[in-house]
Write a protein that binds this DNA or RNA. Structure first.
Lengths: 222, 222
DNA sequence: GTCTATATGTAGATAGAC
DNA sequence: GTCTATCTACATATAGAC
């Protein structure tokens, strides 16, 4: 399924190194600005300026604003899914995981990336928050996030065969919301606790995992 | 402090009944469209059309798009704060509340309104989700939500004097995120559990309260 | 792939009649 | 307060030279 002649695909030649860099710069700029101001608040012109590229080039690589938006969401979603599923496999190989261990495989990879991967990963969390808030992006959300989410829900369901799947899914969605809140609303936690927000993100991992695991356990036995 | 001559205030006469109705229709339309498409995705013209009012009137009542947005957020925020604080007072009068009881006073009033108050309250939840996702609205968020949030965090802190305030605030912010997820992402819960989303919102109250209370308790003792 | 110039629509805001 | 007409700016998208 790779590199065979495909009449559907338009691009025939491999892109040059410079082209790939330009494309990456455009996606980074789009990620930053879509995250900061949402789909309609970020203009192609602003994205072009931030990327240091002319406007026409942004259209060329993005194939229109909506498609550019989807590409930006998809890029890290795919990377995250791989990391999460790999973590879950390792965890399962070491023995039957409990809810906390399962959720640690889901949130851990993101928190590690956010800690070490630079500010683009924080921008991405805000972008996902925008996607979650806006009903126009439901299709994007389903397409790029649901398959992996279903695997994790299955894993919890296997651990608690008597619990209704709807309650497990509910607890899981609550947990994802909490994870995004950690990544996007540390300023608010800081304001409400009267001090500065927590310095280290990965230092918050166990607290978040404990919150999610206890919450899910309580919700499914209610 | 009421009805005295105030040189700061511009409006001198009480608005007519018709004017108040028009204003309410404009705020409702703005709420719906801001919730659906975010600040930049909703245009003043769309809001005017939905409200059945001319564009100039939207500007007149809203005093500019940003101020209109803030007014829409503020309207229900103030109403919700009153309901929540009243619920907490009643709860405290009946004896020392635990974490679940405290959180029930916070999320209960919203879920009841969403159940009985019509679709505008669901739109408002999406609007708040947009406000939370977008760093441009931090001031609005602080101004209209933080005071009440601080009261509830204080109440939990009184119950657990040894827990750090930062952890309590973190658990509270996670809980608010979960509440918004219930109001804005039932479609996703439905998709992930392979069936329809839950019919009744208030039927989900105890499950959500259990999730939040167990999560907070686990997070502060971690 | 890269970049410039341009076409076409629509945005927020305001002036002024009623 | 209500409504119409209009100003100015900027949006997305594309055509075509290099």
């Amino acid at each position: 399924m790779k590199n065979v002649t495909d009449p559907e695909k338009k691009r025939q030649r491999a892109p040059s190194k410079r082209a790939l860099e330009t494309r990456a710069r455009i996606l980074d700029a789009a990620e930053l600005l879509f995250a900061e101001r949402g789909f309609d608040g970020a203009s192609i012109r602003d994205i072009a300026t931030t990327a240091g590229a002319p406007v026409g080039l942004v259209h060329h690589h993005g194939e229109g604003k909506e498609e550019l938006f989807r590409q930006v969401v998809a890029r890290r979603a795919d990377e995250l899914s791989s990391l999460r599923l790999a973590a879950l496999e390792i965890c399962k190989a070491a023995g039957k995981p409990d809810i906390a261990a399962i959720m640690r495989c889901f949130v851990g990879p993101y928190l590690e990336r956010a800690e070490s991967g630079g500010p683009q990963w924080f921008a991405y969390a805000r972008l996902v928050a925008h996607v979650s808030a806006d009903p126009r992006w439901r299709r994007i959300s389903s397409r790029h996030f649901d398959a992996t989410a279903a695997v994790f829900i299955d894993e919890i369901a296997r651990l608690h065969p008597d619990a209704s799947r709807e309650r497990i899914a509910t607890g899981f969605v609550y947990s994802v919301a909490a994870m995004l809140a950690l990544l996007t609303s540390r300023w608010r936690i800081g304001e409400l606790s009267g001090g500065e927000p927590p310095v280290s993100i990965s230092g918050e991992l166990e607290e978040l995992v404990a919150f999610c695991a206890a919450g899910i356990a309580a919700a499914i036995s209610k």
